[in-house]
Amino acid sequence: MTVDHQQTDHDVIKHGHRHEGPYKHVVAFIFSIVLTLIAFAAVAAGGVNTTFTVIILLVMAVLQVLVQLGYWMHMKDKGHFIPILFLVGGFFVAFTCVVMALSWVWW
């Protein structure tokens, strides 16, 4: 008596990891390039208000970090809770150090 185990799409999704293919990586790469071009254009424009340029650069930097973490470092996938927890903790410690240094200098 033989039992044939045919693998269906449901089994692959339920029990294994389905390969995403290069499509999402290409989209993330193009999005990273577009963010870089926007930041470069904001600085190269020259006549733009300095405060506006700094805000644009900060927004583009945050978006770039999210794209890098999500797609290139695979933080969007399951099983990455501990690395994400340590990254959030590191950002909290760094933010606290910056706030303390600024208050120490200006107090």
Rank of each mutant, 00 (worst) to 15 (best):
Q7A: 13
Q7L: 07
Q7H: 13
T8P: 02
T8R: 12
D9I: 03
D9G: 13
D9C: 03
H10Q: 15
H10L: 15
H10I: 11
D11A: 02
D11Q: 02
D11N: 01
V12N: 12
V12S: 15
V12F: 10
V12H: 09
V12I: 08
I13S: 14
I13G: 13
H15D: 14
G16D: 08
G16V: 15
G16R: 11
G16A: 07
H17D: 08
H17R: 13
R18M: 09
R18N: 13
R18W: 10
H19P: 00
H19R: 05
E20S: 14
E20P: 06
G21F: 05
G21C: 04
G21L: 03
G21V: 04
G21I: 03
P22Y: 11
P22C: 11
P22F: 06
Y23K: 06
Y23Q: 07
K24N: 14
K24M: 09
K24F: 12
K24V: 15
K24A: 10
K24L: 15
H25S: 11
H25Y: 12
V26T: 09
A28G: 06
A28V: 04
A28L: 05
A28S: 05
F29N: 01
F29G: 01
I30R: 02
I30N: 02
I30Q: 01
I30D: 01
I30H: 00
F31Q: 06
F31R: 14
F31M: 14
F31D: 04
S32M: 05
S32E: 01
I33G: 00
I33K: 01
I33Q: 01
I33Y: 04
I33C: 02
V34L: 12
V34K: 09
L35N: 02
L35S: 00
T36E: 10
L37Q: 10
L37M: 10
L37Y: 09
I38C: 08
I38A: 12
